[in-house]
Amino acid sequence: MIEARGIKKKFGNLEVLKGIDFNVEKGEVLCIIGPSGSGKSTLLRCLNRLEEITEGTIKIDGEDIHDRKTDVNKLREKLGMVFQSFNLFPHLNVLNNITFAPVELKKMDKKQAEEKARYLLRKVGLEDKALVYPEKLSGGQKQRAAIARALAMEPEIMLFDEPTSALDPEMVGEVLQVMKDLARDGMTMVVVTHEMGFAREVADRVIFMDDGLIIEEAAPEQLFTAPQNPRTKDFLSKVL
């Protein structure tokens, strides 16, 4: 579903991605782990073109997404994105945060979109927060609302950029639970995370990145219990 080949990304003279290859299959959950500054968030952001790549190709459903002819807005409708800092729209209540894009882009009528939004809010356990503004929500609630917002566009793939890193510890669980449910429903997911427990339990495959390169790629059991590369071992010994 996602096919990335030889991805390089430079910010000025700084090369943050130094040649990355990976695939994601339909229905697969891929977790990307690694130290800060390893380029994992940048890699994720390249997948929906929030960052342009310097070299290489990324194909999603066979379509070269960095091609000039690709309609980036149409592409992004297929990819839901969840950010570390939630980025809910503060001037819209939770319901309108969710219905905004479907109404604008799918020309869905407001009523239908609201029904859908309420269904999604039930799914993430926020049915009673529909008319509340984001500032009144806790971090965990904000992130669950942000997931519901991304799901409202019925994406084929969900991208998570450290979705629990900005949360108080006691709220991490509720967000991870929603993500687990999503994985169980068969959603294709790419998750950049520091939650090793989540990666181990939910991922089909884990990629360990360091210094702009994929160092190791394996099934979670193998990567966490028998890492092959010394850098992976070193990283895991620090975080586990």
Binding site: F83, N87, F89, A101, L105
Partner: peptide, 15 residues
Amino acid sequence: VDKGQMEAARSLGLS
């Protein structure tokens, strides 16, 4: 306005 707002809107597919 936080730049995450533009990113969130764009990543939903809005122009």
